[in-house]
Measured scan of single mutants.
Amino acid sequence: GAPPLPPYSAGGREVTMKKGDILTLLNSTNKDWWKVEVNDRQGFVPAAYVKKLDSGTGKELVLALYDYQEK
């Protein structure tokens, strides 16, 4: 199953993602919540729920390892 959710501390809205989604990583300075862009929406997802990909394009991409439903 998915890892436990860290307390929400990102101070911005969250976004929903599905397992297998490829998201653009915008900011990973917060260790628990990373800012991503998905379907032209920006928001935060739990860092433990995604994995960085080596895209080779200069853009940082992450793979959704679990479904996440915004609150």
Rank of each mutant, 00 (worst) to 15 (best):
K71L: 12
Y8Q: 11
P3C: 05
K31T: 08
T57V: 13
D40G: 15
Q42A: 13
Q42P: 06
G58N: 11
V38T: 15
F44E: 02
L65N: 03
E37M: 10
F44R: 02
W33M: 02
S55Y: 12
P4W: 06
D21A: 05
V36F: 01
F44H: 04
L26Y: 03
A2K: 12
P6C: 04
E14F: 10
V50C: 11
G58V: 09
D40E: 13
F44Q: 02
V62A: 14
L23H: 02
L63P: 00
W34M: 03
E14W: 07
F44K: 02
D40H: 15
T57N: 15
L25A: 02
L61N: 05
P46A: 03
K71W: 12
P3K: 05
Y68K: 02
S55G: 12
P7R: 08
L63S: 04
D21N: 06
D40V: 06
G1V: 08
G58L: 11
A48G: 07
K31V: 13
K35W: 15
A48C: 07
P6W: 03
E60F: 10
R13L: 13
R13F: 10
W34Q: 01
K52R: 13
Q69P: 15
K19C: 05
L23R: 01
L23C: 08
G43E: 03
A64N: 00
G56E: 14
V62R: 00
T16I: 06
A2E: 08
T29R: 11
K19R: 12
I22C: 04
N27F: 06
A48K: 10
Q69T: 15
S28W: 09
Q69D: 14
L63D: 01
S9Y: 09
L63C: 06
L26N: 03
Y66L: 04
V45A: 03
Y66E: 04
Q42Y: 07
A64Y: 01
D54S: 13
D67E: 05
A10S: 15
V36I: 06
Q69H: 14
D67I: 01
V36W: 00
K51M: 14
P7A: 10
Y68H: 05
Y68G: 00
L65Q: 04
K51F: 07
Y66F: 12
K59G: 09
N39H: 10
F44G: 01
L65P: 00
L61Y: 12
K71M: 15
G11T: 12
V45L: 02
N30C: 08
P7N: 09
L65K: 04
A47N: 02
N39A: 13
T57Q: 14
I22P: 01
A2D: 07
F44T: 02
D67M: 03
K35E: 13
Y68P: 00
T29I: 08
Q42K: 10
S9A: 14
R41N: 12
L63W: 05
T57D: 15
T16M: 07
Q42H: 09
S9G: 13
P7D: 11
K59W: 09
I22A: 03
D21Y: 05
L26W: 04
A48L: 12
N30H: 09
K51A: 10
K71S: 14
D21E: 13
S28D: 15
K59M: 11
E14D: 13
P6Q: 02
G43D: 01
K19P: 03
L53Y: 09
K18P: 01
A48N: 13
P3E: 05
K59P: 14
G12Y: 09
D32S: 07
K52C: 07
N27C: 09
G12N: 06
S28L: 04
V45D: 01
A47M: 04
L65E: 04
G12M: 12
Y49E: 00
P3I: 06
P6T: 02
G1K: 11
G12E: 09
A64E: 00
V36Q: 00
G56M: 14
W34T: 02
S55I: 12
L25F: 03
Y66T: 03
V62S: 02
G56Q: 12
D40N: 15
R41H: 11
P3R: 05
A2V: 13
G58D: 14
N30D: 12
P7E: 14
E37V: 08
E14H: 15
V15Y: 05
Y66D: 03
Y8K: 08
G20F: 04
Y49G: 01
S28Q: 09
T29K: 10
V36R: 00
V38K: 15
G1W: 08
V50Q: 00
L26Q: 03
Q69E: 11
S9Q: 12
N27T: 06
V45K: 00
R41S: 11
K51Y: 06
N39T: 08
Q69C: 09
V62F: 05
S28N: 07
G56R: 08
A10G: 08
F44M: 06
K71F: 14
K31G: 10
G1Q: 12
G12A: 07
V15A: 05
G12T: 06
N27I: 07
G56W: 10
G11W: 04
P46K: 02
P7K: 08
G56I: 14
K51E: 08
K31W: 07
G20H: 04
N30Y: 05
K31L: 11
V38P: 00
Y49L: 05
P4A: 11
Y66K: 05
K35A: 07
S55N: 14
T16S: 15
S9R: 14
L53F: 12
P7C: 12
K31Y: 07
Y49M: 05
D21F: 04
E14S: 15
N39Q: 11
M17Q: 01
N27D: 15
S28F: 06
T16C: 09
G20I: 00
M17S: 00
L61A: 06
A64I: 02
E37A: 11
D54M: 11
K18W: 09
Q69A: 13
Y8N: 11
K35Q: 11
P4H: 07
K35F: 15
G12C: 10
L53M: 09
G1P: 14
P4E: 09
N30T: 04
P46I: 02
K18I: 07
L26I: 14
R13P: 15
G12P: 06
E37K: 09
A10Q: 08
V36G: 00
V36D: 00
L25N: 01
N39I: 12
G56F: 11
L53E: 03
E37I: 09
N27H: 05
R13Q: 13
T57L: 14
E37S: 10
P3W: 05
Q42D: 09
P6M: 02
E70Q: 13
Y49C: 03
W33N: 00
S55R: 08
Y66H: 07
D54I: 12
W33Y: 04
K71Q: 15
P6N: 03
P3T: 05
G1C: 12
Y68I: 03
S55W: 15
P7Y: 04
W34D: 00
V38C: 08
T16D: 08
A48P: 04
L53G: 03
V50T: 04
R13D: 13
F44I: 05
K35P: 01
S28H: 08
L25I: 06
V36T: 01
L63G: 02
A48R: 12
E60I: 15
A47V: 04
K19A: 13
D67Q: 03
D54P: 15
A2Q: 10
V45I: 09
M17Y: 02
T57S: 15
L61M: 11
A64W: 01
A10E: 06
L23V: 05
T16E: 07
G43Q: 02
A10T: 12
K31M: 12
T57A: 13
E70G: 15
G1R: 06
P46M: 02
D67F: 03
P46Q: 01
L61Q: 12
K52E: 06
